[in-house]
């Protein structure tokens, strides 16, 4: 019986898969029938696979079918249940978010006052981005009663909450793919020519080579030409001053 159950469960699994693919009830049956019809061959194969000498118990076809149908139903039900559970979980989380939000917010009276005062200017300042949002909102059918609609809105709010202040919402449409691609291409060429392993030096070193090699040796260009490396020199000067000060303090 164990054997048979095993087989049956295998079949049902297959059948469930089929059922999930094509939800037509008739085709389910067909599938099951087919698998039943081809049972002879399968039996042999599985016998070989399992290495078991005992022959499986005979199960009448009707019974097997019923069992299969039942298991399909069970599987479908379990899927439904899982979905429901997930929904419930989400809702709970949403409520948690809401509560958290409320906890964070200031007292209601104050909030209302602020909202009334700044609503107009806020809308103006948000400009396009807000407009896009509001457009989307208006496009949605008003489903205040249905749980799903409100959930989605809540999710959006939660998203807005999670966005940090330094982030800005932009439309991808305005940005364009071209810019990004162009940037990437420029990065590529920059990396190829000047990236790690490209063995680059500075202009100072390159032009100092001739000074170094000539008969009357001269200092590097940055010391010969006063206009070179001004920033670095200023930094060095600053550092020197600071260092001297420090030393002075230390000795005193």
């Amino acid at each position: 019986v164990l054997k048979c159950n095993n087989m049956a469960s295998k079949r049902t699994r297959r059948a469930v898969a089929a059922a999930e693919k094509e939800s037509g009830g008739k085709e389910e049956k067909k599938e099951v029938m087919e698998s039943g019809g081809a049972g002879g061959n399968e039996k042999e194969e599985e016998e070989e696979d399992d290495d078991d000498d005992a022959a499986p118990d005979e199960v009448p076809f009707q019974q097997a079918r019923e069992e299969a149908v039942r298991s399909i139903k069970q599987a479908l039900e379990s899927v439904k249940r899982e979905k429901l559970l997930l929904k419930e979980k989400r809702r709970q989380r949403q409520e948690l978010f809401k509560e958290q939000k409320k906890r964070k917010l200031l007292p209601e009276a104050l909030l209302e006052e602020v909202a009334a005062a700044s609503q107009t200017s806020f809308i103006k300042s948000l400009g396009n981005i807000h407009k896009v949002h509001s457009c989307e909102d208006s496009e949605k059918p008003e489903e205040g009663n249905s749980s799903e609609g409100s959930e989605e809105e809540d999710e959006e709010e939660a998203l807005d909450n999670r966005l940090k202040e330094s982030y800005m919402a932009v439309r991808l449409k305005d940005q364009g793919q071209i810019n990004l691609q162009q940037e990437r291409a420029q990065d590529f060429i920059q990396d190829c020519l000047y990236g790690p392993g490209s063995n680059r030096t500075t202009a100072n070193e390159l032009f100092s080579l001739s000074n170094k090699k000539c008969f009357n040796k001269k200092a590097a260009v940055q010391f010969v030409d006063k206009s070179w490396g001004l920033e670095k020199k200023q930094k060095a000067e600053k550092f020197k001053k600071k260092w001297l000060q420090k030393q002075g303090v230390g000795t005193n």
Partner: peptide, 19 residues
């Protein structure tokens, strides 16, 4: 010309004997 050179992108390092 040297003022222009100082602001060009970095050149390739080349080893010269004796430097």
């Amino acid at each position: 010309l040297m003022d222009i050179y100082s602001q060009l992108p970095p050149p390739i390092r080349q080893k010269k004997f004796g430097t």
